[in-house]
């Protein structure tokens, strides 16, 4: 079995981003970048499946600027076997990423592609579903449990009403939710080993994909600020405020 894991380089989840004064975007200068947390969960799941279903190859793919190599190396340090960078300076939107990944998938012929459910920068929640449609594959989004059973996979999904378990045919797309697993940490020896693992670089042109953005960002703004609140002394004061000031109870 071969598993492809697309990993995205994003602003670290601990960083509170700021909007640029000219409202053209958020300020990313000198901001810590990391692997999207949902992608870490995807890598971890691929590695766990590899342990159960050997021989399996786990290939990490990232699309974007050359620094995405660091994100791929991070996946290799966790245990992925090799990496593919689709390198471009262009702004990449989910449809373009899905097309690039489709092209990579047709070269690699994986049985399973595990993505994050959402990138925590664009909060799009699109790429996996788009890729599934472009490939004509089944999909299971928001996975909290994955079990490969021969030619099908049983995936438990976190849905609005609780949990839903679906059986999907391979090849398939899975997107990860938070509770699928707890990703491991890379050990120092594995970080060293990762430096020697193969990492190929491709260009969108070579894959025949036009990545021109479809959505134009006209402006980026701060969210509306909430008016400063007050601290109340005790439960009685809180009740008084809720009843007589806010009038919500």
């Amino acid at each position: 079995m071969k598993i492809l894991v697309p990993v995205k380089r994003v602003v670290d989840y601990n960083v509170k981003v700021r909007v640029k004064p000219d409202n053209s975007g958020v300020d990313l200068a000198n901001v810590k970048m990391s692997m999207n947390p949902f992608c870490e969960i995807a890598v971890e799941e691929a590695l766990r499946l590899q342990a159960k279903h050997a021989p399996t190859e786990v290939v990490a793919v990232s699309c974007g600027v050359s620094q995405c190599q660091e994100t791929i190396r991070a996946a290799l340090a966790l245990g992925a076997d090799r990496g593919i960078l689709v390198e471009t300076e262009a702004e990449l939107q989910p449809l373009a990423v899905a097309k690039l990944l489709k092209a990579v998938a047709s070269n690699e012929q994986p049985d399973l592609i595990i993505l994050g459910k959402q990138a925590i920068d664009d909060d799009a929640n699109q790429t996996g579903q788009m890729l599934a449609a472009l490939l004509g594959w089944s999909q299971a989004t928001f996975a909290s449990k994955v079990e490969v059973k021969g030619s099908t996979v049983e995936v438990t999904r976190e849905v609005d009403g609780g949990l839903e378990t679906v059986e999907i045919k391979l090849p398939a797309i899975i997107t990860t939710d938070l509770r699928l697993n707890e990703p491991r940490y890379a050990t120092l020896p594995n970080i060293m080993k990762a430096k020697k693992k193969p990492l190929d670089t491709l260009k969108p042109e070579a894959l025949g994909v036009d990545v021109t953005p479809r959505l134009k960002t006209l402006s980026v703004n701060e969210p509306a600020k909430r008016a400063a609140g007050v601290k109340v002394a005790d439960v009685a004061a809180l009740l008084d405020k809720l009843r007589n000031e806010a009038k919500v109870i």
Partner: peptide, 19 residues
């Protein structure tokens, strides 16, 4: 919703448009 978020990007991709 969980249904809308799962299906809409599939539709967009097949129409070759952004979501």
């Amino acid at each position: 919703t969980s249904v809308g978020k799962s299906v809409a990007p599939r539709i967009a991709a097949l129409l070759d448009v952004a979501q």
